[in-house]
């Protein structure tokens, strides 16, 4: 059974002027110990999905309209606020993109980690302190640095502290929202390697939100491609990287400059992401799609399994036309 199972999740931001349909009918599942990559561009609804899982959507204007989020068999959307608070940080923790702002600047890093442990674990302050030192060592920071303040750490080191904090309570699920986007490539490689190793040690599942398909190829087991609040394609690495079906997924790959092939001109996806307050009818991607037909503009494509474990939301793929 999967650890996390999201069914039909729909999240809207409702203001008096308009309704932003940020997440529309999203289905996702993550098995224990596996990593799911959630890929999409700015505004695709990736972060909203993650915040929805933690029930951290600010209400109002945000509202989880429908769906269920089964975590360990329990529907998180039906849990009390108190239970959710216990689950956050304990069973599910999150790493944010910017390590610079994720740490309290006037608290020693060791104390910050210890606090999380103390709040969630049934332990004394001393035990929490010990655990914090152990976690720092685990992420490759010498224990004597635990008395230092965040500004004494570099960006990569701060992100390590954030990761130590997220893993301190041995969560079952780790949500990482662009954890390495603010870091340099060589540091990114170090951090990704470390996350992978720690994940294996603790048998943690991970939802990795990213826009970088390279990171996905190196760290994920399964991939969900998100566009305009919907999952447009879902499958394992082979499905997505070797046999992508949805025109958007294919377009993403074609937009990337290659490191080993010579391409005179890139073939970007034309146009822009639609305004989530004013999504087009039919297929959300039809305004930018090269294979658009009349039906695409009117009929909303279903989320279809085209081969075991490989889902695509495209009318023309479904009909076998492309």
């Amino acid at each position: 059974m999967s650890l996390l199972d999201i069914k039909g999740l729909t999240i809207h931001y409702i203001t008096h002027q308009n309704t932003v349909r940020a997440v529309n009918d999203v289905d996702l599942s993550i098995d224990t110990g596996k990593t799911l990559g959630l890929v999409g561009e700015t505004g695709a609804g990736k972060t909203t999905t993650a915040l929805g899982i933690l029930r951290l959507i600010q209400t109002p204007p945000g509202k989880i309209v429908s769906g269920e989020i089964l975590f360990d068999g329990k529907d998180l959307l039906k849990e009390s606020e108190h239970n959710i608070r216990m689950i956050r940080g304990n069973d599910i923790s999150m790493i944010f993109q910017d390590p610079m702002t994720a740490l309290n600047p006037i608290m020693r890093v060791g104390d910050q980690i210890a606090e999380v442990v103390y709040l969630h674990g049934d332990c004394t302050k001393e035990e929490a302190k010990e655990r914090s030192l152990h976690m720092l060592e685990t992420v490759g920071i010498r224990a004597e640095r635990s008395t230092e303040f965040p500004h004494q750490f570099s960006g990569g080191m701060k992100q390590r502290v954030v990761i130590a904090m997220a893993l301190a309570c041995k969560p079952k699920l780790l949500i990482a929202d662009e954890p390495t986007t603010a870091l340099d490539v060589t540091i990114q490689a170090q951090v990704l390697k470390m996350i992978n190793e720690l994940k294996a040690v603790y048998n943690t599942s991970m939802l990795l939100i990213t826009h970088d398909l390279g990171i996905v190829a190196e760290t994920c087991d399964e991939v969900a491609i998100m566009y305009a609040g919907q999952i447009v394609e879902y499958g394992n690495l082979e499905h997505i990287f070797d046999n992508p079906k949805h025109p958007y997924t294919i377009g993403l790959f074609k937009s990337l400059p290659s490191l080993d092939k010579d391409v005179e001109r890139l073939s970007p996806i034309k146009g822009l992401m639609p305004d989530p307050a004013n999504l087009p009818t039919g297929c959300k991607f039809h305004t930018r799609c090269d294979h658009v037909c009349e039906d695409c503009k009117a009929i909303e494509p279903a989320y279809q399994e085209i081969e075991p474990g490989h889902f695509v939301r495209c009318l023309r793929v479904e009909r076998g036309e492309i």
Binding site: V185, T186, I187, A189, Q190, D212, A217, L259
Partner: peptide, 19 residues
């Protein structure tokens, strides 16, 4: 260190330590 968007890419792992 560059992540390659290709699952068949075998890369030599030279993770540079330090910053």
């Amino acid at each position: 260190a560059i992540p390659i968007p290709n699952i068949h890419h075998k890369k030599k792992e030279i993770v540079m330590a330090g910053e």
